[in-house]
Design a protein around this nucleic acid. Structure first.
Lengths: 292, 292
DNA sequence: ATATTTATCTGACTAAAGTCAGATATAATG
DNA sequence: CATTATATCTGACTTTAGTCAGATAAATAT
């Protein structure tokens, strides 16, 4: 018996396959084939567009059609043509379908809950799961503009502040920093972007504007799980695009010596170090970039 | 979008399912249905007994029979009746079957390798995978007697010594401790047990004897991943059984104040604190237990 | 206006997976 | 010894999954 990395990976794979397989078996217990259950779940998760469902589940159009017909015959869903495009169709759960979907959710939830609550340290297990899922979803991180007061944004900011408090020698207190007002990071003055990996926020960046041609980049953060994947660079590129769309021509930012990877990121991506431009107590370095 | 524990578990589950599904697709690429491939792999892993294969893969006996017949027709396996029981049959790979099995192994290995080497920190990923797999295999930890010089035993001991070096204020050097000779932990003088979770060692304990009625318990270790699951108690019960089987009637052990959980374990399980019985520089506490 | 593309549906398939009731031979039990 | 249990096999199914070639109707391009 060896303990090299490949056999460890495969041990993990066996363990998880067994766990996931058991859930599939319990899904079968509701007397519906797995294919139908998967379609019902996709619709319950809000995928109403049939082309979307087909792409998500990787199904043939004929098969999809028949599965939908089956769910319709059971009275679990209703379909109608898409309001904007007469070729497409959209599906929706009926009340009975909603009840059935909830039953499936319940099965998933109890499977998850039973596993997590049986473990002496559920938080550590969840952290390990986030880490692995983020690694597996690496190619599929989306960057979305959100309101800086949304759940996802606040989740990121809380982790960002925690990290500053840990890494700055002098600690960190938001109140002492030049905290941009949320309204400065909302169009038309600015923007706030969150990187999502299958729904979990793994990074953020803010753009603070005053209505003029000068903007300031704030709150760049990448989750520890997602570091080393070029996400910081992607977020910076995305926020520059936002700035251009708001007709800005110059961006500024500040950073602290306790964050050397950020300093490197700015240096490598066309930013120039400039003189101090504010009296915030935390930053040590100041950068500027002209947008073309 | 919420970030509660259930949705994090399910995000993990989705990510892994997709990864596993991709591997299944690549298996299909070898032109054999998944069912046959799974049986071939089970045989290649050394499951020769057909009843065992059936139980492992959860298949109907008729289906198993047909899948085996198919592999036999392809010239990949041979079956013959079990030497000890004329009703049972055993399967074995032919050279062609071995080659085919190796091709499947190659697919798994490259999938694992591609994933691990694409990540900036493969060691952290593997640690997280071990942690999760151990948690999922919790109910399936076996305790086996092994030679203390075997790979599994040395793996455990190396981690045990590392941990002592980290936790003892004064550090730890095996050479200074009363290191029992390996021959004292092998029958008929003693024993060495390793706890395996699907092949990965997650704990150990040694029994050092001198041929008489007195034995000494040494090297009790439980992997951090497996703590909180009662494995320490199971290992201690198993080593007591070994001692009884060797006709011992009294066991002793020593421990250090830097290992309070061990102290508690002995206190809770029928051990009595006694006076120092050796001049090893490391231990602070000494225990004895009479076996009934 | 006509031609082409796109999204979905239908019918006619095939392949794979799974079920079930015997049949057969061996092993274990009283 | 007869009886019962066990392991496997075979034949005759059903269900599920997946494929493919049109048909239909709406959208888009020329």
């Amino acid at each position: 018996m060896e303990h090299d990395s490949i056999s460890r990976y495969r041990r993990f794979s066996r363990a998880v396959t067994r766990q996931v397989g058991a859930l599939d078996q319990s899904f079968l217990g509701r007397g519906r084939p797995l294919g139908s259950a998967r379609v019902l779940n996709a619709i319950g998760q809000g995928r109403c567009d049939i082309a979307d469902i087909r792409a998500y589940l990787g199904l043939d159009s004929g098969l999809t059609s028949r599965l939908l017909r089956g769910l319709e015959d059971e009275g679990l869903i209703e379909t109608r043509t898409h309001p904007d495009d007469g070729r497409r169709r959209v599906a929706e759960l009926t009340p009975a379908g909603r009840a059935e979907f909830d039953a499936y959710e319940e099965l998933s939830d109890t499977a998850a809950d039973r596993f997590l609550s049986a473990h002496p340290d559920p938080d550590a297990i969840l952290a390990a799961m986030d880490f692995i899922a983020t690694a597996m979803n690496r190619h599929a991180v989306t960057i979305d503009r959100v309101d800086p007061t949304s759940t996802a944004a606040r989740y990121c900011l809380a982790r960002y502040y925690d990290e500053l408090a840990r890494r700055f020698e002098e600690g960190f207190d938001v109140a002492l920093s030049c905290d941009p007002d949320a309204s400065d990071m909302v169009p038309p003055r600015g923007a706030f972007l969150v990187a999502l990996s299958d729904g979990l926020p793994v990074g953020c960046v803010g753009l603070k504007g005053n209505g003029g041609k000068l903007g300031e980049v704030k709150r760049l953060w990448v989750a520890p799980d997602a570091r080393g994947t070029g996400l910081g660079k992607r977020l910076m590129a995305a926020i520059e695009d936002e700035a251009r769309a708001l007709s800005m021509d110059t961006l500024r930012l500040d950073t602290n010596r306790a964050l050397p990877e950020a300093y490197e990121l700015y240096n490598r991506n066309g930013w120039t170090e400039i003189d101090r431009f504010n009296d915030d107590p935390y930053p040590d370095f100041f950068f500027e970039k002209r947008l073309v």
